[in-house]
Design a protein around this nucleic acid. Structure first.
Lengths: 347, 347
DNA sequence: CTGAAAGCGCTAACAG
DNA sequence: CTGTTAGCGCTTTCAG
């Protein structure tokens, strides 16, 4: 690999001059000399060595991203947002993927192994002189473990810490659920069944709050028996839809698309047409939501924006040493598709 | 940030000794001194500076990954495979994401802009002293543009070059399609309809070859009117299924899951039960394939393995300067689910 | 406008 | 076992 020194030797100037010319320093060298140097560098396929430059400048313009699992459906889009924002601001990224699912078979959260891995990745990033780190969870949840010895700004994306030691960026489950419920109410629905997730889930609890709030707003009494609890998987949606349909709900709000997909099946078996006889809403905007007829109405979480905002927070902290330890919840987009219709049932 | 020099000063030894101790060089220092140094380093939260180390060693143990678009469904799994293999071999990764879809609105392949972006990313990686690069396409296709001035081993994953200038790793479309067709034949199917993709697609052509070969093996005459051409999207599957069903096929092989999902709808409208009245196979193993009842049989491409092998090739090239410019096609896994049944039609 | 000198943090070579 | 010297490739004084 050809160096600046070599070019200096060949063109009979000092390394300083070469460096100046190649970095476009104003009035660095005589025009002729400059052109000669540039040409030479080009012909010799000169490439600056980032390591050397960063070492000397004590600046890498790099932020690190640690993902819990890059293959979990929401992660890439978040990374994409971080990446885009960094690029726009002249920062580079370094990605480290914990690969939690493949590594630990889905049984890892807040175990010593996980902590050790995290600490080692943090150390590795620090060693590489990143100037900030974004930690990307694979779903929104509370993380108990605080990484040790963090020396640069740190932001949590799509997850948050038990106590606000660092800022975090999430999306607003509660508002989204409220919006969906309102929309259903405005279409005339009063008996709105909910296929909730396990109450241990942050998402499930927040969405339920939103549902209750919207009902209360419209003076509709919430009925406990219209809320059933699934495990986020399709079969539970199929099973639980049965009990809700028995209770004559006119609409079902499933707290994720997978369970909603089970509702399609249950409805089909009963000869009920989704969007006409029964309205259905999901959550997540998974691929699957467009794979049914009629298409599933759903909630799209602002993944790209979560990434962007996380990066912005990091960058602004790096620049202004601003301290901010808050949670930020970004709004979701409600995607109304044909699975929702006017309530035809007499009240 | 605390340096080795500082520790040397505080513990009254030379930087060399500190370096030796901290790197566990055998017999580096007296036990007491060594312990003292280690403790000091720990208390001061010493972190080695990777930049400095790599610069001095002229070695980064890093390979670069350039993805065309990280958010396209198959990419993360491939990256995961590369990452896993690198980790096992003591290499680090650097990821650069072209974000082609968001950047150019799906109209970019082999345009000057794309080339420029690629070249700039390659340069950037070279500047960072990566020792090899894996280029990850967003789907298997032929790439015409040869990056200029590549100075390290380069492998193409999930895509390939027009001419074999560099090795590439793909999956075996033809064999997978042959396996699927055989399986259907063995279940007694003779009139097997195909919902193909556009013939401009590498995948479509290869899968069609596999289909023909399997038929020929069993002396079944291929009928042109049983092959229809979609655009990979769901509506085309719905539409084209109609024409195949009119032609009384007993099985449909859709060349992707999305189009297969349209077949479900068409079949339902005609009161045909998938898996009984009509057998159905897809391709890709998308999430959606498990979102129907009965579940869709499909083909799972070896994404993780593509990643792993690409990394292995890079690493072995780096080590042994082995030259290999071949395409490698890895086998897919056939996932037989309930959408396939014995042919009940009299022949 | 130009270059000599110094140094970023680390390690390798070699001498004591 | 320990320290000195030298240098990775680059940029930044600062003097000419």
């Amino acid at each position: 690999m050809i160096t600046i020194k070599e070019i200096a030797r060949l063109s009979g100037v000092s390394t300083t001059t070469v460096s100046n010319v190649l970095n476009g320093k104003s009035g660095a060298a005589g025009k002729d000399k400059a052109r000669e140097i540039i040409e030479l560098a080009h012909n010799l396929q000169y490439m600056p060595n980032t390591l050397a430059r960063n070492l000397q400048q004590k600046k890498t313009n790099t932020i690190g991203i640690i993902t819990e699992d890059l293959t979990v459906f929401n992660t890439p889009e978040i990374v994409n947002g971080i990446d885009a924002c960094c690029e726009e601001n002249g920062y580079e990224i370094i990605l480290a993927n914990m690969r939690l699912f493949k590594r630990y078979n889905n049984d890892f959260t807040d175990t010593p192994k996980h902590h050790e891995l995290l600490d080692s990745m943090m150390r590795n990033m620090t060693a590489k002189q990143v100037e900030g780190i974004v930690y990307v969870g694979y779903h929104c949840r509370e993380i108990a473990y605080l990484p040790s010895r963090v020396q640069v700004p740190l932001v949590y994306a799509y997850c948050y810490l038990k106590e606000d030691h660092y800022p975090s960026v999430l999306f607003d489950d509660e508002k989204a659920a409220m919006d969906v419920t309102r929309l259903l109410i405005e279409k005339g629905h009063r008996r709105i069944g909910v296929i909730c997730g396990p109450m241990s889930s942050f998402h499930a609890r927040a969405r339920l709050r939103g549902y209750f709030k919207a009902l209360a707003e419209h003076q509709i009494k919430a009925k406990e028996d219209l809320i059933v609890y699934g495990d986020w998987e399709r079969p539970s949606g199929y099973r639980l839809a049965a009990s809700l349909l028995d209770k004559k709900v006119s609409a079902i709000f499933s707290f994720n698309d997978l369970m909603a997909s089970g509702v399609y099946e249950q409805a089909a078996e009963r000869g009920l047409q989704i969007g006409k006889d029964i309205s259905l809403f999901g959550f997540d905007n998974r691929d699957i939501s467009q794979g049914y007829s009629p298409q599933l109405s759903t909630v799209q979480p602002p993944l790209n924006e979560i990434g962007r905002l996380s990066a912005e927070i990091i960058i602004s902290r790096m620049k202004h040493r601003k301290i901010n330890k808050n949670k930020t919840a970004l709004p979701c987009t409600i995607l109304e598709r044909q699975s929702v219709g006017i309530c035809r049932r007499r009240l």
